[in-house]
């Protein structure tokens, strides 16, 4: 029982992290029609910015996280506005651009910080007793912040004019533009919002997991997985799928070990892509 609860809590906290990543990823696909291969790069960048602030400048960790969010959002905004925007209607071209950015980001971080993992620790440690199990405090804090960020994102998207504009663009770009919405203004904001979320996740999670130049690849793979499961472009789908993926990963690693859980998820995703590209929830999404 204790083992089961432990796995469930790990799964939920993984799920919350994946949800932040997947929401950003699916936001970009839904609104711009762009598959962001650089998503893992922004996660990494968030981690390294937070690390640099704490270790090199002596900034307190919470402030460092905010700086990381600002930095990743700013880079996303600039990249969308000056590069992606020029080719935004060409799916393969935008994909190549984000891939190029990812290569530059991950290689730049490798050049700057070297190939070894950084000594980057979460400022709070110790465990809290929850019934029969002990849960690390840092996991609970990250879980709480991730959930708060998800709620904040929901408020932005569903309760503000910016959010209404973004969702209208995702539904039907032509109609939204006819109603006077300006993609040139909103696209960079959407991209910045999404990359800021990836940066936030990186800044929060890398001190617990690991911070090295290789951590972007699995993040990208997990984002793909989650977003396809949830249905490309669907926000609710991405959030639900993220928790499902987190739980499956946690339980598989506790009860089976190895990579069998990942294998099952990937095969499921392959079948979904082929037979039901709208994802498990089946909401209709934009064509590619």
């Amino acid at each position: 029982m204790a083992q089961f609860l432990q796995a469930a809590i790990i799964g939920l906290s993984l799920g919350a992290q994946y949800a932040l990543l997947a929401l950003g990823f699916t936001l970009i696909f839904g609104i711009l029609g762009v598959v962001n291969f650089a998503h893992g790069g922004f996660y990494m960048l968030g981690g390294y910015v937070a690390y640099s602030c704490v270790a090199l400048l002596g900034v307190p960790y919470p402030l460092a996280v905010l700086i990381a969010v600002a930095a990743t959002a700013a880079l996303g905004w600039v990249f969308e506005l000056f590069l992606l925007e020029r080719l935004v209607d060409d799916h393969l071209a935008t994909l190549m651009l984000t891939l190029g950015l990812y290569l530059i980001l991950s290689n730049g971080l490798l050049q700057t910080f070297g190939p070894l993992a950084m000594e980057f620790r979460f400022p709070v440690s110790g465990a809290i007793r929850l019934g029969p199990v002990y849960v690390p405090q840092e996991n609970l804090i990250v879980l709480a912040i991730c959930l708060a960020a998800i709620v904040a994102l929901w408020v932005v998207l569903y309760r503000t004019d910016l959010g209404r504009g973004l969702r209208a663009l995702a539904d039907d770009r032509a109609v939204a533009m006819a109603q006077g919405l300006r993609p040139k203004l909103l696209f960079p904001m959407a991209f910045a919002l999404a990359t800021g979320l990836a940066g936030l996740t990186g800044a929060l999670v890398t001190p617990i997991l690991a911070l090295s130049p290789g951590v972007g690849d699995p993040v990208l793979a997990t984002s793909f997985l989650t977003v396809i499961l949830g249905g490309l472009g669907s926000l609710q789908g991405a959030a639900l799928a993220a928790f499902a993926v987190g739980l499956v990963e946690a339980f598989c690693s506790v009860y089976f070990g190895g990579s069998i859980g990942a294998l099952i998820l990937f095969v499921l995703v392959l079948l979904l892509l082929v037979f039901r590209p709208t994802g498990l929830l089946g909401r209709t999404v934009r064509g590619a």
Partner: peptide
Amino acid sequence: GLYGILIL
């Protein structure tokens, strides 16, 4: 990194 720059 070089590949990335050239792709862009």
